[in-house]
C-alpha cells in the first residue's frame, strides 16, 4: 500500500514540475494556461489520491477526517479548475491578446460576438513592452 502511495505522490509531483516548466517556457497566455491548469489538475489529483491510499491501512478518527477533507478538495478541484481556466482564457481574449505563433482564422471572423479593436491591441502591446 505505501509503495503505491509513494508512486502516486511521485507521479503527481512530476506532473506538477512539468507544468511549472511549461509555465516558464510557453510563449503566450493560452499555452501557459494549458500548462498551469490542466497539468496541475492531474497533478493535484494524483497527490491527493496518494495521500488517501497512504492513510487507508491504519484508519482512525483523525485520519478519517483527513481522507474526507482530501475527497472534498478533489471534488472542488475537478469542478473549479476548468471553469477558472475557461474564464481566464476568455478574459485574455476579451482583452485582445492574440495567440503567439499561431494562425487563428475564427479570431477575427464576423460571426464572433465580441469584436476586438486592432488599435487597442497594439497599444496594450506597447504598454507591456514599456517595462524594459
Amino acid at each position: 500500500m505505501s509503495i503505491l502511495s509513494d508512486i502516486l505522490l511521485g507521479l503527481g509531483i512530476f506532473v506538477c514540475v512539468i507544468s511549472v516548466i511549461g509555465l516558464l517556457r510557453f510563449p503566450d497566455v493560452y499555452t501557459r494556461l494549458h500548462a498551469g491548469t490542466k497539468a496541475t489538475t492531474l497533478g493535484s489529483l494524483l497527490v491527493v489520491s496518494g495521500i488517501i491510499v497512504g492513510f487507508l491501512p491504519e484508519i482512525d478518527d483523525s485520519e478519517f477526517m483527513i481522507i474526507i477533507h482530501a475527497l472534498i478538495a478533489v471534488m472542488l478541484i475537478i469542478f473549479t479548475n476548468p471553469i477558472s481556466a475557461h474564464a481566464i482564457a476568455r478574459a485574455a481574449m476579451l482583452a485582445g491578446i492574440k495567440p503567439a505563433m499561431a494562425e487563428v482564422d475564427e479570431y477575427n471572423s464576423p460571426s464572433h460576438d465580441i469584436s476586438v479593436n486592432d488599435n487597442d491591441t497594439n497599444k496594450s502591446d506597447e504598454v507591456l513592452k514599456e517595462e524594459q
Binding site: L76, F79, T80, I83, H86, A87, R90
Partner: peptide, 16 residues
C-alpha cells in the same frame, strides 16, 4: 459578458 459556464459555476460555488 462572461459565458454561461462561468455564471452557472458561480451560482453553484457561491454558497459553498
Amino acid at each position: 459578458g462572461m459565458t454561461r459556464i462561468v455564471s452557472i459555476g458561480t451560482v453553484l460555488m457561491l454558497p459553498i
